[in-house]
Write a protein that binds this DNA or RNA. Structure first.
Length: 256
DNA sequence: TAGGCCATCTGGTCCT
DNA sequence: AGGACCAGATGGCCTA
């Protein structure tokens, strides 16, 4: 039923967003042809169904002829398609910043996998940031500057880790440090030189602190897509440092 | 072939 | 009134 059959990738969830093309693609697909057939002169059933669905405003709707109703339906469909395409573009944008290899030969993450991975990735970065803050604090012996900045961060958002303030100068500097931290991500410096297919991220990562464990029943399908990337902290369970503040992370976890 | 994933259509609901 | 958002239904594609 895909209307974007002209796309190079038949499985693309985000076909090129050409709004003007939406109607044309719709007109070319099977569903529209079926729809058009069913809305022919002799099809009373479909017409009555359409009318039933549009009788919320009897007076206004009754003034619309079938062509106008059809045009309206096409406009609604087009908007919905555009909305979903925008959503998929956002999903692609999220995939791009995930520590996974990207490329035509690599099967992209499913939507649910992307969301679960993104969430756990954020949690991992948060814990890494906390770890780095402690390390920096140790290095500078509890420098007043660090302390004041840390307390400032806490004051700005006392209920959530300062990792949620990525634009803060301290957060930026710490974030840059995270990528080269020997303690936590040491083996990345070697594997990252020549990115190679990684063992499948275990379910412990994809369900890391997740209240919806088991939602991603078979994370092994990710095995062909996972790679260590240069400078990217690895979210896999093998590389996963234990959260420094489990309670904090759990408080951040989704409540649904 | 079954199951997973996806795009699309559709009607309902809520918001501006 | 029109648009955004949502969920259900449907059917296609792909993989194990």
């Amino acid at each position: 039923m895909d209307s974007d059959t002209g796309s190079s990738c038949s499985r693309s969830s985000s076909p090129d967003l050409v709004v003007n093309d939406a109607a044309r693609s719709f007109f070319s697909n099977k569903m529209f042809q079926t729809y058009y057939r069913e809305n022919g002169e002799d099809n009373k059933a479909t017409k009555s169904r359409m009318d039933d669905g549009l009788t919320a405003k009897p007076k206004a709707r009754s003034e619309l002829n079938r062509d106008e109703i059809q045009d309206m339906r096409l406009k609604v469909n087009s908007r919905e398609r555009k909305r979903m395409h925008d959503l998929n573009q956002a999903m692609d944008g999220l995939r791009e910043v995930m520590p996974y290899a990207h490329g035509p030969s690599v099967r992209k993450l499913s939507k649910i996998s992307t969301l679960l991975l993104a969430r756990n990735y954020i949690l991992m970065l948060s814990s890494s940031l906390e770890e780095m803050k402690k390390l920096v604090g140790d290095v500078y012996g509890g420098s007043a500057t660090i302390q004041s900045r840390s307390s400032a961060l806490s004051a700005m958002n006392p209920t959530t880790p300062s990792a949620h303030l990525p634009l803060h100068p301290l957060a930026q500097s710490l974030h840059s440090l995270v990528a080269s931290t020997p303690l936590t991500f040491q083996h990345h410096s070697t594997s990252a030189v020549a990115p190679a297919p990684h063992s499948p991220p275990s379910s412990t990562f994809l369900s890391f602190h997740s209240p919806i464990q088991g939602l991603l029943k078979d994370p092994h399908h990710l095995s062909s897509t996972y790679r260590h990337l240069p400078g990217m902290p690895c979210p896999c369970s093998l590389c996963q440092p234990l959260p420094t503040t489990t309670s904090t992370l759990q408080s951040m976890s989704m409540t649904k």
